[in-house]
Amino acid sequence: MTLSLSGKTALVTGGSRGIGRAVVERLTADGARVVFTYHSAEAEAASLTAATGAEAVRCDQADLGTLPAIFEPVRDGLDILVNNAGIAFARTLAEITFEDFDRVLTINTKFPAFAMQAAIPLLRDGGRIINLSSINTALPAPGGALYSASKAALEQITKVAARELGPRRITVNTVSPGATDTDMLRSVNTPEGLERAAGMTALQRLGTPPDIAAVIAFLAGPDSAWMTGQNLHAGGGFLI
């Protein structure tokens, strides 16, 4: 087995469950030292730490005051930042409140953007930033105005960051999962909707968190050094 990330340090937000958990498992398996954040899933975070040796840090992305604490364990240097944490939100435009707007945009866009800013002085040259978006920016659905907008904004910030950090050989990319079987997906879709999504996918199934983690591991590793400012749609052919 080749430990392609041996000697590297990674910070993964929202690592206790779903896609984030699979990313922590994959990056540690590839040899990286991993720090991950969690919000309320304390038991899941503890079990992940026990299984992988990764370090857990509690964080509330609705509160930017918690941002400095997540970088404390990596003050000695960082190689990989994965902005994974986010919330799904289904509400029609007619129903959205000011509070809804602020919460979704803060968690899904503002916090990741300032996490990137905080990471810049810590990232070693040749580092990696990987931001999680969604297929919904390309295929927006009713009720998804805030979610799609928050992720679309993050995609544009990613492209600008790729230009700005390119001189240091730091790559900045987006991964946009398709319909991936997580608690978040199931919380905003009916079983019938999930069945339809699987049927619309070229590979005829929902994605799994390890499917997405594999794409993120590629972007975190040495073979992706010539790829930056890109948005990889990891959806099994949901969008072609």
Score class of each variant (00 low, 15 high):
143 G>P: 00
36 F>M: 02
85 A>N: 07
96 I>T: 07
48 L>P: 00
13 T>M: 09
137 T>L: 12
47 S>N: 10
91 R>Y: 04
9 T>F: 11
108 N>V: 11
76 D>G: 15
77 G>L: 13
70 I>H: 09
85 A>R: 09
40 S>I: 09
127 G>Q: 14
134 S>A: 14
150 S>W: 06
65 G>P: 01
53 G>C: 03
114 F>V: 12
76 D>H: 14
17 R>N: 06
55 E>A: 11
34 V>T: 02
99 E>G: 02
139 L>R: 14
144 G>L: 15
105 L>Q: 07
12 V>H: 10
84 N>E: 13
115 A>V: 09
27 L>H: 06
105 L>G: 00
99 E>N: 07
14 G>F: 13
102 D>G: 01
147 Y>P: 00
126 G>H: 11
35 V>H: 04
13 T>F: 11
65 G>A: 15
129 I>A: 04
24 V>F: 12
137 T>H: 10
65 G>M: 06
40 S>V: 12
56 A>F: 12
119 A>I: 05
96 I>F: 00
7 G>S: 10
91 R>F: 03
35 V>W: 10
112 P>L: 10
87 I>S: 01
130 I>P: 00
147 Y>T: 01
22 A>Y: 15
44 E>H: 14
150 S>Y: 06
33 R>S: 13
7 G>D: 11
114 F>M: 14
28 T>L: 11
105 L>W: 05
59 C>Y: 08
40 S>R: 15
142 P>W: 13
126 G>A: 11
50 A>D: 08
65 G>S: 13
134 S>V: 11
